[in-house]
Amino acid sequence: MVRVLILQHAEGEWIGSMNDWFSEPSRVSGFTLTTIRLDHGEALPGRNSFDWLLIMGGPMSVNDESDYPWLCEEKQLIRQSIADNKTIIGICLGGQLIASAAGAEVYRNSAVEIGWFPVIRTDTDVTWLPETASLLSWHGDCFRLPAGARPFAASRITPCQGFSLGPRVWALQFHLEAQPGTVEAFLALEPHGLPEGKYVQPQQQLLSEAFLSRSQTIMHGLLDSLV
Rank of each mutant, 00 (worst) to 15 (best):
P191Y: 08
L176F: 15
L165G: 05
W128T: 00
T132Y: 03
R156P: 10
Y199V: 01
I157G: 03
E190G: 07
E113R: 00
G197R: 12
W116Y: 01
P195N: 08
E113W: 00
R168P: 06
Y199P: 01
D123W: 06
L187S: 09
S155C: 13
L145A: 08
G115H: 00
R121W: 03
W116V: 00
W128F: 14
W116T: 00
T122P: 01
L136Y: 00
L176S: 10
V112H: 10
Q161Y: 04
L145W: 02
I114V: 12
E177D: 11
E131W: 04
G197L: 03
A111R: 12
T127C: 11
R156D: 15
F143T: 00
G148D: 11
A171H: 08
G140C: 02
C160V: 13
I114H: 00
T158S: 13
R168T: 14
A188G: 07
A154W: 09
V183S: 06
G115L: 01
V200K: 04
I114L: 02
A111S: 13
Q161A: 15
L176N: 10
G162S: 10
R144M: 10
G140N: 04
C142F: 11
R168V: 12
R168E: 04
P202A: 11
W170S: 08
E131H: 13
F174C: 13
Q161D: 15
L189S: 12
T122I: 10
L136A: 01
P130K: 02
P159S: 07
S134C: 12
F143K: 01
Q173I: 04
S134D: 14
W116P: 01
Q161T: 14
R121G: 02
T158E: 07
L135M: 14
F186N: 09
G166V: 05
G197D: 06
R150H: 14
I120R: 15
P195Y: 06
T132P: 03
A147H: 14
V169D: 00
T127P: 04
P159T: 03
V112R: 15
I157E: 15
C142M: 13
G197E: 02
E177S: 05
W138M: 09
I120D: 09
G140M: 01
Q201D: 09
H139G: 01
